[in-house]
């Protein structure tokens, strides 16, 4: 039943243990949130799971296969996709092209067919474009389709990244702060969108600072602090957990 299993994952940068011995599992259709104060190691954890960083220790198991440190493009073939906290959009391409890029695995054929614009290439490109327009509608960006991505607002780009990731029809979707920079209305839309994606059977791993949103939509929450997993459980139990409260209060005291 487990789709993604994180087993004792860890990495150090110089002397700093950014993530240390973190384990948890994600099932299909489940929303698992990873929370923790700034610098807790959430993005680093995502980077290891998605093959951007090579873990110093531990394993990532996807669908029973050990995929530790596998290149992201091979993980994509196996059904894993992600979005980025620090936006990674194709700036000089249009919003539509950015989304079509998410169809790459379904769309790409032989390069010679592409050079000659053979009917097979045209047909695949058409199908990808139709799918992309549908997705843009779902994230509310259909009217920006022909605009250059670089000209969009931060919140719109966040949704563009989600649309691009959805294009892959992933089995596991990692979302790193999808609602950052979005207003209350947009946040609620993203909230619904994530719930919808999960309801279709996709396993979702979410990093988000908006605690109301996290408590509302998560099935399970993993709490990191200084790279260590300090708690996990359902939203209610985690929000009552003294160690979690201390970590957040500690962070606030340090900041204030």
């Amino acid at each position: 039943m487990t789709l993604l299993s994180i087993e004792g994952l860890g990495i150090s940068f110089g002397g700093l243990k950014a993530v240390n011995d973190v384990s948890f599992t994600v099932k299909p259709g489940e929303i698992v949130s990873v929370i923790g104060p700034n610098g807790a190691g959430k993005t680093t954890l995502f980077n290891m799971i998605s093959g951007v960083y090579r873990p110093g220790m531990g394993k990532v198991v996807l669908n029973g296969e050990d995929v530790t440190a596998m290149s992201p493009h091979l993980l994509a073939r196996r059904g894993m996709c992600r979005t980025f906290q620090n936006l990674q959009v194709f700036q000089s391409m249009t919003v539509l092209e950015n989304t079509i890029a998410g169809y790459h695995l379904q769309e790409s054929g032989h390069v010679l067919s592409d050079l000659l614009n053979l009917p097979a290439s045209r047909r695949r490109a058409k199908a990808a474009e139709a799918g992309a327009r549908e997705l843009l509608k779902r994230v509310g960006l259909e009217r920006a389709a022909e605009r250059e991505a670089g000209s969009l607002s931060y919140g719109s780009l966040k949704r563009l990244e989600i649309a691009r990731a959805m294009a892959l029809k992933p089995k596991v979707l990692l979302l790193d702060e999808p609602a950052a920079g979005c207003n209350a209305v947009e946040t609620e839309e993203i909230d619904h969108l994530i719930a919808e994606i999960a309801a279709s059977g996709v396993a979702i791993l979410l990093v988000e600072h908006d605690m109301k949103m996290v408590m509302r939509i998560s099935n399970h929450i993993v709490v990191l602090d200084h790279g260590e997993k300090i708690a996990e459980g359902d939203p209610a139990s985690v929000s009552r957990n003294p160690a979690v409260i201390a970590a957040y209060l500690g962070a606030e005291n340090a900041a204030g």
């Binding site: 994509a76 990674q88 390069v111």
Partner: peptide
């Protein structure tokens, strides 16, 4: 032809963000 095909789009994409290109399955 190439520019607006899957291959050309992928080339322009990896130019924009290599890591994002990889996450959507492009063999950079």
């Amino acid at each position: 032809n190439l520019r607006d095909s899957a291959t050309g789009r992928a080339l322009r994409a990896l130019h924009g963000s290599e890591v994002a290109a990889k996450t959507v399955g492009m063999d950079v």
